[in-house]
Design a protein around this nucleic acid. Structure first.
Lengths: 304, 304
DNA sequence: GTCAGATATGTAATCGTTTACAATAAATCA
DNA sequence: TGATTTATTGTAAACGATTACATATCTGAC
């Protein structure tokens, strides 16, 4: 079908080894031979087959990236960060979205065990630690974004959840707010737990105690923010002075409900978010900025 | 290194052909032999090497997706749409961002000519038509999103630019606005040209003529919206009744400038956008909704 | 009991590279 | 000059699958 290395051999009269050496910039072949081969390559428009190469060299020059379904804006920024450093190192990206644990397992089979990638970056993965370990055991370098597992061939880069939340909470306290609602993330998630922990720590350090009802359940989605806010309003509770949403999506949801209900935001209720997604800037939402793209870049860097 | 087909042969005593048939669900091998092989595969945790497979079958089960650097929100939705149908057909995605024409060429070499993908989806590509044709000539099925080229093995799916813009403009006219500014996209781009054309058509149909100065130059970026708006204000012109931004990013930029300058939006100036990105909903920007995700799904569908 | 046809399995070439090792030619040295 | 080193180039075996073709076994029809 397409032009192969053999075609170059036929045209130039040299062996496959020599041609291969030219393609790979080996210093073994120089001078006129090299020129002849280069000319033939250009003339026949030869390009090595990736599959054959990958098979022979036992590496694919591919970086796998698996994302969970959540966090649209977040996601595209991380990916861009990864792509940037990957491209620099001559890697290409194989990407996929997983919607649940079953998906994740299947994807990992395809990426890791069929050896389609040389390294894998996992964002916010759902699978238990033993799966992570089992991948490392087959020799796959792994980068986990936002999950704190370490080990040989196992890197993890994370958002500074604790520091960020502390900063946000202090900001609210400095403004004199004491009646603060916290819109929490999905329980059991690393990010959510860390952020909640950070809040509590800062509060207790400041000597402020919040009643249990001020910790609203949420799921890091806009909808969950709406639900929590509506529930509060429907119950006839008095409005908090401030709401600290542990991610921006929930903040937006809650704000939306308040505005629909005729409240002025942020005049009547102050808002603090986390993630600083693009939308935040436009709706007057104060938000802790997280260096998302850099996260991706670090991820890319670790997985050489 | 890892478990290969030969290992399964050794363990079961059957030939490579038989094992291969089992992996590929051939109806030729059934009954006890099949069971024995399956057991061995499970026991040794065998998984076929993607590289070897791709080489032997001359196909990779990979779908290439190349995006230009613009349009962050847009991008991630299209990708999700593509991923959805690709996954259903057993394909995986190889993605890349191109920052300029040189990048694009290099990426195409890697994707197409090194045969890393079986089909390619190009979003808003910059390269001239002859490059597109040359890819088709080597037998690569191509899907162009937002570019109207057709041909053998060459599909293109597009946003309904004309219809969308018409709808938006009519909406403004119905509200009685006549002093309307149009924030245009980068000249020479298919999308930008189509949208502008649609505006003019609707205007002339309604018998409205806009002076040349009401067509503001823009580049589909938020910044270009800010620049255009600032320029207008600095020049001391009277505010238009409405601004039709030919994409949402520019609308957001312009809105931002107005609000900073102390104007009330949309009370003093009505806004109309195009794309309906996530942010639009939160800032009171009316916007024409474009079925972005479906675009991706169509793209995925064509490239089997 | 033999033969045609179906069914199940194996043999070996092929896909397009890389690379260890061998071979040859040219250059250096005593 | 002959021996030794160095610089090139070639040979052929991987890499790990798929698949056309050949072979063997088992039906049942006659």
């Amino acid at each position: 079908m397409s032009v192969t290395l053999k075609d170059i051999c036929r045209k130039t009269g040299v062996s496959t080894a020599t041609v291969s050496r030219v393609i790979n910039d080996s210093s073994l072949v120089t001078g006129p031979t090299r020129e002849r081969v280069m000319d033939a390559i250009r003339e026949l428009k030869y390009r090595p087959s990736h599959a054959a190469r990958a098979l022979a060299r036992q590496r694919s020059d591919m970086l796998g990236v698996i994302f969970p379904q959540i966090h649209s804006g977040f996601f595209s920024q991380v990916l861009r960060g990864i792509d940037e450093v990957a491209a620099k190192d001559g890697f290409h990206l194989m990407t996929a979205f997983s919607h649940n644990v079953v998906d994740e397992k299947k994807l990992i089979t395809h990426f890791v065990h069929e050896r389609r990638v040389d390294a894998l970056i996992l964002l916010n993965i759902l699978l238990p630690d033993r799966f992570v370990k089992s991948m490392v055991e087959v020799g796959m370098p792994l980068v986990l974004i936002d999950r704190p597992v370490k080990g040989e061939n196992l890197f993890s880069v994370s958002i500074d959840n604790l520091g960020g939340v502390e900063q946000g909470m202090e900001h609210l306290l400095e403004h004199g707010y004491r009646h603060i609602a916290i819109l929490c993330g999905p329980k059991g998630t690393y990010d959510a737990d860390q952020r909640l922990k950070g809040c509590k720590k800062t509060l207790s350090k400041a000597g402020v105690t919040l009643p249990q009802e001020m910790f609203w359940a949420g799921g890091f989605t806009e909808e969950s923010g709406q639900v929590a806010m509506s529930k509060w309003l429907d119950a006839g509770h008095t409005l908090p002075e401030a709401i600290f949403a542990l991610n921006d999506a929930m903040a937006l949801g809650a704000m939306h409900v308040l505005r629909e209900a005729g409240y002025r935001v942020p005049d009547q209720v102050a808002f603090m978010g986390f993630d600083d997604n693009e939308t935040a800037r436009h709706v007057g939402l104060t938000s802790i900025q997280v260096p998302i793209q850099e996260l991706g870049q670090m991820g890319g860097t670790y997985s050489d």
